[in-house]
Amino acid sequence: MGISTASMAQLRRHTDHAGAMASGICLVHCLMTPVVISLFPGALPYLPGDLRVHRLLAAIILLIGAAAFIPGYRIHRRKALLGLIAIGLLLILCVAWAGNAMSPSVELVLSVSGSLILVAAHLLNRSFCLRCTACEETDVCQTTRMH
């Protein structure tokens, strides 16, 4: 018993929401950690900011992103969206695996940029599915006329 095309379309919408949410959590983490450290230096030992946390967040973003983008790309074939996804993921993964090799300000700029790009890519991917009248009935996108 397979999954219906309508169920797949609904799953794609939910994974894009989850992906945008995961990227948004990363964004909030990146922006708020320096603020919390500045305002409450005693909270530093309790903040999730070590290398393992960054790598875990990056892996979660990668997995959720793949679950959302791969099915969407197979239907819509938007190469510009694929480029946004690649750039956003590359920035997030570089920051997560660079460790202390980059300055905190560079780390902040790259991770915030990557997160914003991924949030935008998820919302764009979702907008293609919302505009497509056939996504719930077939694997052929009526917006782009591609298989």
Rank of each mutant, 00 (worst) to 15 (best):
T143R: 12
E136L: 00
I25N: 11
G88Q: 05
A68C: 10
T5N: 07
L56C: 13
I92W: 02
S127V: 07
G49Q: 12
N100R: 05
A58F: 11
L123N: 04
L11T: 04
A58Y: 12
I117H: 05
S105D: 13
A22P: 11
V119A: 06
R131N: 08
C94V: 08
H17D: 06
M1V: 08
T133A: 07
A86M: 12
H29L: 10
V36W: 03
E137M: 02
C30K: 11
C135S: 11
E136C: 00
K79G: 08
L89P: 11
I61E: 06
L91T: 04
L63W: 14
H54N: 12
T5Y: 00
I61D: 09
A121Y: 00
L81R: 03
V106Q: 10
L44W: 10
V36I: 15
H14F: 00
I70C: 09
A86F: 14
A80T: 05
A101C: 08
N100K: 02
A86L: 15
L11H: 10
H29Y: 11
S103K: 13
A66D: 12
L44I: 15
P104W: 01
G49R: 14
L57Q: 10
V106K: 02
D16H: 15
A96W: 14
T143I: 07
R78G: 10
L123K: 04
S111C: 14
S103Q: 13
R131C: 03
P45Q: 02
L91C: 13
L130Y: 09
D16Q: 15
S7N: 12
R55N: 12
M21N: 05
R52H: 14
L93W: 15
A22W: 10
M1P: 07
M8L: 14
A20K: 06
R131V: 00
V119C: 06
A18K: 07
I75R: 14
R74G: 09
H14E: 06
L110I: 05
A101I: 05
P41Q: 09
H147D: 00
I3P: 06
V95M: 04
G42R: 06
P41R: 04
N125L: 05
R126F: 05
L90P: 00
I25C: 15
A98S: 12
E107A: 04
P41L: 09
L116Y: 00
L56T: 15
M21G: 10
R74A: 03
T15Q: 08
I70F: 07
S127D: 14
I60E: 15
E137S: 10
I61Y: 03
A58W: 12
S115Q: 01
C141Y: 00
R55L: 15
P104H: 07
I3H: 13
L39K: 12
L91N: 10
C26E: 02
L130T: 13
G2R: 07
I60A: 12
T144F: 02
L84N: 08
I85T: 10
I61G: 02
H54I: 04
L84Q: 03
P71A: 15
E137A: 08
L124R: 02
V36P: 06
E137C: 01
A43S: 08
I70Q: 10
H122F: 04
V112L: 08
L116H: 07
G19T: 02
